[in-house]
Structure formats: structure tokens, C-alpha cells
């Protein structure tokens, strides 16, 4: 019984990027950090901001705005770094703000309709409707791997 309940819901972290809300399952999230000093690493893709010292571990940081081709943010007040662990990689995402932790019903997640357009959509694995909010679920593999 408990299993069925667990499967019916996915706990996600909701974050803001420009005018949209995105979600990542908490199982991938290692923590949320305030913006700190980032050391630039030369000769890396433009969206790799550099590396931070995350409690003694050197962790690479990806600027999601840059990754999605969005303009850089002016006000950095609410900016957060969401630390993600995917397989053996630990990476931080820079987001405009971290908004919420929510349970969303698995049933309410719809597959992203195939739209070829801005590169943003390439990273989406699905969309969940929640009351009046629209949450975009990120495809982490694609965000981390360079697009072919």
C-alpha cells in the first residue's frame, strides 16, 4: 500500500528561471546553496560558470539561463545554486530562485509534446499541471550532456 502511494507522487524541488517554473525530483538534489564565489575554469563551454568549494569538494556550476539560451539575470538577490547528483557526477545549477518543495501526482505529468524550436525544449522531460501552475520537469541527462 505505502508503495503504491509513494509511486503515485513525486516529490520535486520547484525553481524559477525567467518566467517559467521548473521542477527536479528531490531524489537528485543534494542541497540548495546561496550564490558564492565561483572560480572560472578556462576553455569550458560558455554555460559552465566555473567551480565552487562545496564544503571541501570542488563542484562544477552550470548556469541554466546560459544553458537554455536565456539572457543573464540582472538582480542576483534571490539566485540559488541547486546541487544535483546524477550517477557519479555532482554539479550545481544556477537558478533565479528556489521556490518550493511539492508533491506532484505522477498521473498529472504529461509528456512534453514534440516541438522543435528554442533549445529550451530539448531539456524537458515532461510537464505537470498543478492548480494554476505549470511545472516543467527537466531532463537532467540532456542538461548535463552536450547536445549533439
Amino acid at each position: 500500500m505505502t508503495n503504491a502511494v509513494e509511486q503515485a507522487y513525486v516529490k520535486v524541488i520547484v525553481f524559477q528561471l525567467a518566467d517559467k517554473e521548473y521542477a527536479i525530483p528531490v531524489s537528485y538534489v543534494r542541497g540548495i546553496e546561496k550564490l558564492m564565489h565561483i572560480t572560472r575554469v578556462p576553455k569550458t563551454p560558455h554555460y559552465v560558470k566555473g567551480v565552487i568549494n562545496l564544503r571541501g569538494v570542488v563542484t562544477p556550476i552550470i548556469d541554466l539561463r546560459a544553458r537554455f539560451g536565456l539572457p543573464a539575470l540582472e538582480n542576483e538577490e534571490t539566485v540559488r545554486i541547486i546541487i544535483i547528483q546524477l550517477e557519479d557526477m555532482e554539479v550545481g545549477f544556477i537558478v533565479d530562485s528556489a521556490n518550493d518543495v511539492l508533491d506532484i501526482e505522477s498521473a498529472s505529468i504529461e509528456q512534453q509534446p514534440e516541438v522543435v524550436g528554442s533549445s529550451e525544449e530539448d531539456f524537458i522531460s515532461g510537464v505537470a499541471k498543478l492548480d494554476k501552475r505549470l511545472l516543467i520537469l527537466l531532463h537532467l541527462d540532456k542538461v548535463l550532456n552536450p547536445l549533439g
Binding site: 575554469v41 578556462p42 567551480v51 563542484t59 562544477p60 557519479d88 555532482e90 554539479v91 548535463l144
Partner: peptide, 15 residues
């Protein structure tokens, strides 16, 4: 090490 995401950075051996 720079971790598993950033590998083979030119002329950088670590951090």
C-alpha cells in the same frame, strides 16, 4: 580533482 563532469580541461591538472 575537478570532479567527473569537467574532465580533460586544457592545461589544468586539478584544483
Amino acid at each position: 580533482s575537478l570532479g567527473n563532469y569537467l574532465t580533460n580541461i586544457f592545461a589544468i591538472s586539478g584544483a
